[in-house]
Design a protein around this nucleic acid. Sequence first.
DNA 1: TAATTACCCTATCGACTTAGTAGGATATTA
DNA 2: TAATATCCTACTAAGTCGATAGGGTAATTA
Lengths: 136, 136
Amino acid sequence: MLSKKTKYGIKALTFLARQNSRKPVQIATISKSENISVKFLESILLTLKKNGILGSKKGLGGGYYLLKDPKDVPMTLVMRVLEGPIAMVPCVSLNYYEKCDDCPDEGTCAVHRLMIQIRDNSLKVFRNTTLADLAN
Amino acid sequence: MLSKKTKYGIKALTFLARQNSRKPVQIATISKSENISVKFLESILLTLKKNGILGSKKGLGGGYYLLKDPKDVPMTLVMRVLEGPIAMVPCVSLNYYEKCDDCPDEGTCAVHRLMIQIRDNSLKVFRNTTLADLAN
DNA sequence: TAATTACCCTATCGACTTAGTAGGATATTA
DNA sequence: TAATATCCTACTAAGTCGATAGGGTAATTA
């Protein structure tokens, strides 16, 4: 299951990408438009900021804004930041590889073989989709 | 993340598919070979039985066995029984569709659009992979 | 420089799920 | 009827998730 964190994060990013100008947008504005709890959204946007996807401005007229052009934000990045590894098992993860303790040989492991295919296909989708694609 | 339930379930099914004969195999045998807790495995095999994937025989010489030829067991079935819906969000699930309460329009929802692609790709993999493919 | 605005951070919480455990009931075979 | 192995129910420790609360800090405006 996709976490609400990721779901809301994608919605918020899309909202920002659909904006005409690049002026900072306040949390409350996004929260209302996308039906997301203000406080929860706050923590999500903070995560996106810490990972270089969003910028922010404090004080009156402040808010969050995209740092890059939507077409330069691949969904692989968004997914990894919000949801974590794209692979369903650590032993097929490219960025977070970990050996299974119970599995003696990955070569003959059925789960390994199956999940590599799933990973490759998901990766292809996330790589070929940018924020711009979702905003249109 | 893939649950251990599903992971162990696939391993157990593969173990059974790799068997030469179709004689019942005891839980303890699978448990030892695949490094799975006996009791946990027990509940998993029971689930597989209740869903028509495995048969069982009680008493001496009893155990679990495949009901169908491995090449007739698609991974879509195994995944749905063990892991649940293949879709990452209910609003793109074929078998367990549910509308999101927060989302006014699926047509313009970025998450919806993205997750349909992921679902379609995963579905393709699971449909085209049978237990026989994993056992070889 | 004071007030305002809005980001930033920590802590907490209830509900739920997961992985695993325990113990006994039931059915089959010899 | 004794041994064997599945079947069934209940329980639990640990972890995660979504959300909430409350205040601290920094930047902007007047």
